[in-house]
């Protein structure tokens, strides 16, 4: 073990890097989903109707909207209501109605919600094609960007993680092979005196588990401290910005990473043990 210290370090280190990347990407994805959920109310679709649409047309449009896949509700907001809410937003002292001279330039509208936040983009596009719709607005592309981001995070991080994961398995296998080489005398004597295959193998599998598990623990440690640090910073700067910080979620993630690390260790050592410990 001590003999090839740097290799042990490299094996555990690449495991750590691989799992760190996996952990970061999972945290990003979890948070993106979480943000999407909590800003769901902000990602309603505002559907502005054409000027002078008849009541039947308004009702027909509602039916058409409701028939689209993923639509949860469509609430009608008359131009009167819109003006009233605008007035409320601007404050009592404003002379909105007076300055408009009794006219109301605001259009009638539907406020549409989807079952899943990610359906907003496609639903908005579909509504835009309906007759009687003047304009469609939703979250200024926030949702779209969020999901495009998570898509790329997923793709890139899985690639990077896969690469480091393979390196980790290779380095663990090499480390184990060197340990076996250093202990070849003991191994051959063990076989002569009648050790079972598993008796000879398990110390090497254990070494693999320690390397993989050690790497995982390192990754978890770094991940935990950097994430808590970042979460605190973000929370302080942008109080409204929601980040997952529930212990249960993090704990589940860390358990998963530890299992993955041990898994990499077992795979790596099994490769060497299987190849070089034949009786």
């Amino acid at each position: 073990m001590r003999r090839n210290g740097w290799l042990n370090f490299a094996a555990a280190g690449t495991t750590a890097v691989s799992l760190f990347v996996l952990g970061i990407s999972i945290l990003l994805i979890v948070n993106a989903n979480y943000i999407a959920k909590t800003v769901e109310s902000n990602v309603e679709i505002m559907v502005y109707l054409e000027e002078g649409l008849k009541d039947e047309g308004v009702e027909a449009l509602r039916m058409q909207i409701m028939r689209l896949p993923g639509v949860k509700e469509a609430r009608f907001i008359s131009k009167e209501e819109a003006l009233a809410s605008l007035e409320r937003q601007m404050g009592k002292g404003s002379q909105l109605r007076e300055s408009l001279g009794g006219t109301n330039p605001l259009p009638d509208a539907y406020k549409v919600r989807t079952v899943e936040p990610r359906q907003v983009v496609s639903t908005a596009a579909a509504i835009n094609r309906l007759a009687g719709v003047e304009k469609v607005r939703y979250g200024q592309g926030v949702v779209e960007k969020l999901f495009r981001l998570t898509y790329w995070v997923r793709a890139v991080s899985f690639g990077v993680m896969g690469f480091f994961g393979l390196c980790a398995v290779f380095l663990i296998a090499t480390t184990i092979r060197l340990t076996m080489y250093a202990r070849r005398r003991e191994i051959s004597i063990m076989k002569y005196v009648g050790a079972t295959d598993w008796f000879v193998r398990w110390p090497f599998l254990l070494e693999g588990i320690i390397l993989g598990g050690g790497g995982a623990l390192a990754a978890i440690g770094v991940l935990y401290f950097s994430y808590s640090f970042l979460a605190a910073k973000i929370q302080a700067a942008l109080a409204f910005f929601p980040l997952v910080n529930e212990r249960s979620v993090l704990l589940q993630l860390f358990e998963g990473l530890l299992t993955a690390g041990v898994g990499l260790g077992v795979i790596g050592s099994y490769i060497s043990v299987h190849r070089y410990l034949r009786v």
């Binding site: 004597i189 002569y192 009786v279």
Partner: peptide, 22 residues
């Protein structure tokens, strides 16, 4: 069978020219 070999070897003691001690 290969997995029975260890039990065969437990019934046989082996000594070599080069001792093979640890």
């Amino acid at each position: 069978k290969p997995r029975e070999v260890p039990y065969l070897r437990r019934q046989i003691g082996i000594v070599f020219q080069d001792f093979r001690l640890l």
